[in-house]
């Protein structure tokens, strides 16, 4: 017993004396077990004024954009060359930029009126592009105006292509902002999210233009499945469009 007491008392004293160091050790152990949480947070807090700013992010983004644009341009050139080899499309026409001077998107007709007409070289049937993709075809022209029948107009019909499943379909306007995509075969294998473009073999409209994204597919429709397509160009917000002239394009 006595020896035991003698043994214990110094130990307790020792422990009391060493307690700050023990606490420190526990804290260090905590840091170690939490994978350096406190240290990393403290470093983040201290170094916050020196973090890479928005300027640096913008540099990187602009570099990325430049890279993508250059690749897109080279791919387009390549594509054009291959198409010429296939004699699919001899030359693509010039783009004419035109202002939207009247917009009818609700009601019985879905159309735009552009501030350029036959004097600028526009002709019925020319495809009209906006930021986001194809929005419609020129329906009629006067010397200084052109009327665009939008893809959403109930009289609009356009052959399109679903790239992922490699199927053709007919894009039928419904008078709402979402046209209907009618397929020809029973099992088109199309899913929501598929991108709809103009047909790569098309000669009526420029090939491979983005049209929209499939929103939903109705497999039960008769006689063939139908899909609802959301156009990729925001029709409500478009003030300027580009009309791709087909004059001189061999058809």
């Amino acid at each position: 017993m006595q020896s035991g007491r003698r043994w214990r008392l110094p130990t307790l004293r020792l422990l009391r004396a060493a307690s700050p160091w023990l606490l420190l050790f526990a804290a260090l152990l905590g840091v170690r077990l939490s994978k350096g949480a406190v240290l990393a947070d403290a470093y983040a807090l201290l170094s916050r004024p020196f973090w890479p700013g928005t300027a640096q992010r913008e540099w990187l983004q602009s570099a990325q954009r430049l890279d993508q644009q250059a690749r897109l341009a080279s791919l387009e050139r390549d594509n054009q060359r291959l198409r010429q080899l296939l004699a699919l499309e001899q030359q693509s026409g010039a783009d004419v930029t035109a202002a939207v001077i009247s917009r009818e998107l609700g009601g019985w007709w879905q159309q735009l009126l552009l501030g350029r007409g036959s004097l600028a070289g526009l002709a019925p049937g020319d495809p009209v592009l906006a930021p986001g993709g194809l929005i419609g075809l020129v329906g009629a022209v006067t010397p200084t105006t052109a009327r665009v029948t939008l893809l959403t107009d109930s009289s609009s019909r356009l052959g399109v292509w679903v790239g992922r499943s490699q199927r053709h379909g007919l894009l039928v306007g419904t008078g709402t902002s979402r046209p209907l995509l009618r397929f020809i075969e029973k099992d088109p294998g199309v899913r929501p999210g598929d991108v709809v473009t103009t047909s790569p073999a098309s000669t009526l409209v420029p090939p491979n233009l983005t049209v929209g994204v499939v929103q939903s597919v109705d497999d039960q429709a008769v006689p063939a499945p139908e899909a609802v397509v959301q156009l990729s160009a925001p029709l409500e917000a478009i003030d300027w469009v580009q009309v791709r002239l087909r004059r001189g394009v061999k058809r």
Binding site: G107, S154, S155, T174, G175
Partner: peptide, 23 residues
């Protein structure tokens, strides 16, 4: 009459009656 013509020409327009009502 416009709705009738849409039906005659077999044009798809699911919002015909909404347009008629609103107009």
């Amino acid at each position: 009459t416009l709705a009738l013509q849409q039906w005659f020409w077999q044009l798809q327009d699911p919002v015909t009656w909404r347009t008629v009502l609103a107009q």
